[in-house]
């Protein structure tokens, strides 16, 4: 119960804060350009407010239902860590180019998921498997995209 109230109310507050913050950015825009974003931001702010009011009313009537499944555990393991992997990959992408970063990402995600799904330690066998998978997928992508199609891929600053 507490959790439902919290997520919805926190979300409402975040929306109101976001709309106020973004609204201050519209100050230097010419009025013609600022009109549409302002309407949208008013809308976001009002939605946030209504969300809080609605939740409180529902709680009072004892009708609140839980539609959120966000927990600290799932936030860390399903959002924060995978997100961090991708952001690191993005950094690698700007430095080393696409294929090396792809290779890295495949390995890391493979190990992480093997660990998460089966809750087992990563042994030499898994390491070898991950290595093979990464090499294989990267090679296939290289053949299709670079050799066959001649598509450009991010090259990275390192090789300039």
């Amino acid at each position: 119960m507490v959790i439902i109230i919290l997520t919805n109310i926190i979300m409402g507050v975040v929306l109101i804060l976001f709309s106020i913050l973004a609204y201050t950015q519209t100050g230097d825009m010419p009025s013609q350009s600022a009109m549409f974003p302002r309407i949208v931001l008013y809308g976001i702010g009002i939605t946030g407010l209504l969300m809080i009011v609605d939740t409180l009313i529902k709680v009072k009537r004892g009708k609140a239902t839980n539609d959120s499944s966000l927990t600290l555990n799932s936030f860390i393991f399903q959002i924060l860590i995978p997100g961090a992997f991708l952001l690191i990959t993005y950094q690698l992408l700007t430095i080393f180019g696409f294929y090396i970063s792809a290779f890295f990402l495949i390995m890391v995600v493979f190990f992480y998921q093997t660990y998460r799904a089966n809750n087992i330690k990563i042994t030499g066998k898994h390491f070898l498997k991950g290595l093979i998978v990464a090499v294989l997928i990267t090679a296939i992508m290289y053949i299709i995209f670079t050799l066959l199609l001649g598509l450009p891929v991010p090259s990275g600053s390192f090789f300039r």
Binding site: F96, I100, V108, I122, F159
Partner: peptide, 25 residues
């Protein structure tokens, strides 16, 4: 422990990547 190992691996892979590439290029 696992996360630490993972972080270490990131560094190693990144380093390996850069080494092999320096050589390769």
């Amino acid at each position: 422990v696992f996360l630490l190992v993972l972080a270490l691996m990131l560094v190693v892979v990144a380093a390996c990547g850069s080494d092999t590439n320096q050589e390769a290029s």
